[in-house]
């Protein structure tokens, strides 16, 4: 029992350090045990960090992921004329396992939100998210819909928001270029939202709705509770 105390202390220490790193603009995503061990700014590691940031910022595989209207402008951004491949971000991968960047191009509705979360979870770290269009910011023109999730950040963390309905391909490319700049400078935005988690149905706090659904959903099925009244 008592042996649990010191690690917690240490954890808190690490946590503070990370928080400091975050506050001073050093990204926490690439924090490694090695860096923790070698102190805050050893020369080799900082140079190596810089190099890795440059690498990650220069080249990205995009997940082939279309949702709604914005996906058309995304297609246009990837095809000739706009050609986002000029920035080294034009290789589409069909499998999330091989992608670095997921562009969320459109409205997310209740049925799709858990699936999108799963696709995001399937991507290997480090991964980045560009939210494209008003719908991924707030639900856009469909915000009042009974079925519309009010922004992608309700489900997954978003690094860059590109406003517009839909944004022009140029705007998307600007968004991607900005993201690359951020990554290259080691300052991707920290996760500020607590995304909705899928949890086992049986673990959800029992209330009227859960009781009602209990004969339809198995105890160990994953489910997401979405409270439409609480969202922005």
């Amino acid at each position: 029992m008592s042996s649990q105390q010191p690690p917690t202390e240490l954890d808190r220490n690490v946590l503070t350090k990370t928080r400091d790193a975050r506050a001073t603009g050093v990204d926490d995503r690439f924090n490694s045990r090695l860096r923790e061990a070698m102190g805050s700014t050893p020369f080799i590691l900082t140079k190596f960090d810089k190099f890795m940031n440059w690498v990650r910022g220069s080249s990205m595989f995009i997940l082939q992921f279309g949702i709604a209207c914005c996906s058309l402008e995304m297609i246009h951004a990837m095809m000739i004329k706009h050609d986002v491949d000029r920035f080294g971000a034009g290789v589409p991968r069909a499998s999330p396992r091989q992608a670095d960047l997921i562009i969320v191009p459109g409205t997310i509705v209740s049925k799709f939100a858990p699936r999108m979360k799963r696709v995001y979870d399937q991507m290997p770290e480090p991964k980045f998210v560009v939210g494209m269009g008003s719908c991924t910011i707030s639900g856009g023109p469909f915000q009042e819909g009974y079925n519309v999730v009010k922004g992608a950040e309700e489900v997954i963390p978003v690094d860059i928001h590109v406003p517009g309905c839909p944004p022009r391909p140029e705007a998307l490319i600007y968004g991607i270029a900005k993201l690359q700049e951020q990554v290259a400078n080691g300052e991707t935005s920290p996760v500020v939202v607590k995304p909705y988690e899928l949890e086992e149905f049986g673990n959800m706090p029992r209330d009227e709705i859960i009781e009602q659904l209990s004969d339809q959903i198995n105890e160990d099925d994953l489910a997401m509770r979405y409270n439409w009244g609480d969202s922005p």
Binding site: S110, K111, A113, P114, R115, R118, Y146, N147, L198, F201, M204, I209, I210, Q212, L213, Q216, I217, D221, L222, A223, M224, R225, Y226, N227, W228, G229
Partner: peptide, 22 residues
Amino acid sequence: SWTGHPLTDDYNQDKPQVVSYK
């Protein structure tokens, strides 16, 4: 798993819904 029929008058859209991954 949706409860209610949304295009009817007595549907309350502020009620939380549980969306199952199922």
